[in-house]
Computed example of a mutant assay.
Amino acid sequence: MTALELTPIWDKVFPESDKVEHGKIIFHNRYGIELAADVYKPKGATGKLPAIAVSGPFGAVKEQSSGLYAQTLAERGFLTIAFDPSFTGESGGSPRYMASPDINTEDFMASVDYLMNRDDVDPERVGILGICGWGGMAVSAASCDPRIKATVASTMYNMSRVNANGYFDADDSAEKRNEARAAMAARRTAEYASRDYARAGGVVDPLPDDAPQFVRGYHAYYKTPRGYHARSLNSNDGWTAIGCESFVNFPTNVYADEIENAVMIVHGDKAHSFYFGKDTYDQLAHGVNPANKELVVVEGANHTDLYDQVDIIPWDTIVDFYQKYLA
């Protein structure tokens, strides 16, 4: 492991709260990758607190949506961390800007390792929250790790499904997947020789006239002062061109129906990604313990509304869920 250099200044896209204490920490996962995180603690809190680890959206950094969620939950009485996944942001891992269904699930479980070993955290009251693609990762981690007592997936993507099948499963065929595999394999050969790992490009900019609503939503968040951040992949050059290759062959939520602990899916009914949340909830609701599984539908909300629109995100519902299952 190598020492990380963390930015000492407040460089979030949201204002700092005077109701919480903020600091920066480093923890490591079981692959030896050091992960950078912001810690948010209710000001003046004493004793052992319930704790929540937050990450996402997919291709974002902790200075964006995950930090907003973490800070807001800290205002409501939880000790929280917002962390950068492996290979991104201020966290370690090389080569940069890669994603992995295995390593990124491990990132969430490593955040639980860290929280359970803090003196000011009650190890029996630890939860996680994932946004966008990290909502799917949160469900993946919950299916692996029974220490996670409560999981929230907000405006979630299933990254394995979208990479293997395309949006709305439009490319769900062996022919389409083999075309994608061949293209990525050719790129790997060329890039190994050149040692130049091309980036896939972040959110499209400028917007084409025929851009669909969800692309416009991404642009409005990642490419404007509302959410732009210099370390964010989506705000800049994106993942490496083969960064999500492994998701095609490795599904992440196969055993979601076996999660015994509590899970809440939060999704806007106008989001292009809504089918990911609905289908995941259906799997949970037909699993081993449907009584503690919830689907919260935010009427009129699109995908990126739940990134940062504080008057739309159902904070009270989320907090009530955590208070119930992290009691």
Score class of each variant (00 low, 15 high):
residue 1 M to F: 10
residue 5 E to C: 06
residue 6 L to F: 06
residue 7 T to G: 01
residue 11 D to S: 11
residue 12 K to L: 00
residue 13 V to G: 07
residue 20 V to H: 04
residue 21 E to I: 13
residue 25 I to K: 10
residue 28 H to I: 09
residue 30 R to M: 09
residue 35 L to K: 07
residue 37 A to N: 06
residue 42 P to H: 13
residue 47 G to R: 00
residue 53 A to K: 00
residue 55 S to E: 00
residue 61 V to C: 02
residue 62 K to W: 07
residue 63 E to V: 04
residue 64 Q to E: 11
residue 67 G to V: 00
residue 70 A to R: 02
residue 70 A to F: 01
residue 71 Q to N: 08
residue 77 G to H: 01
residue 81 I to K: 01
residue 82 A to L: 04
residue 84 D to G: 07
residue 84 D to T: 06
residue 85 P to C: 03
residue 88 T to M: 13
residue 88 T to L: 15
residue 90 E to K: 09
residue 90 E to S: 11
residue 90 E to P: 13
residue 95 P to M: 05
residue 104 N to T: 06
residue 105 T to W: 11
residue 105 T to L: 10
residue 106 E to W: 10
residue 108 F to T: 03
residue 109 M to I: 15
residue 109 M to P: 04
residue 110 A to P: 11
residue 113 D to V: 08
residue 113 D to H: 08
residue 117 N to M: 00
residue 119 D to K: 14
residue 120 D to E: 15
residue 121 V to Q: 03
residue 129 L to C: 06
residue 134 W to E: 14
residue 134 W to G: 12
residue 135 G to L: 12
residue 137 M to I: 14
residue 139 V to L: 15
residue 141 A to E: 07
residue 153 A to I: 04
residue 161 R to D: 14
residue 162 V to T: 12
residue 165 N to C: 15
residue 165 N to M: 14
residue 168 F to L: 10
residue 169 D to R: 09
residue 183 A to M: 11
residue 188 R to D: 14
residue 189 T to W: 05
residue 193 A to L: 15
residue 196 D to P: 04
residue 196 D to C: 06
residue 199 R to S: 14
residue 200 A to W: 01
residue 200 A to L: 11
residue 201 G to I: 08
residue 204 V to C: 01
residue 215 V to G: 00
residue 217 G to P: 02
residue 221 Y to Q: 02
residue 232 S to H: 06
residue 241 A to S: 15
residue 241 A to R: 12
residue 243 G to F: 11
residue 244 C to E: 13
residue 246 S to P: 08
residue 247 F to K: 08
residue 247 F to L: 13
residue 255 Y to W: 14
residue 258 E to Q: 15
residue 259 I to D: 08
residue 261 N to S: 09
residue 264 M to K: 12
residue 265 I to H: 01
residue 265 I to T: 04
residue 268 G to Y: 09
residue 269 D to N: 15
residue 270 K to V: 03
residue 271 A to N: 07
residue 274 F to D: 01
residue 278 K to G: 00
residue 278 K to W: 09
residue 286 H to Q: 14
residue 287 G to Y: 06
residue 289 N to G: 04
residue 289 N to I: 02
residue 290 P to S: 09
residue 292 N to I: 13
residue 294 E to T: 15
residue 295 L to K: 00
residue 297 V to E: 05
residue 303 H to G: 00
residue 307 Y to K: 02
residue 310 V to H: 11
residue 311 D to W: 09
residue 314 P to C: 12
residue 316 D to T: 15
residue 318 I to H: 08
residue 323 Q to I: 00
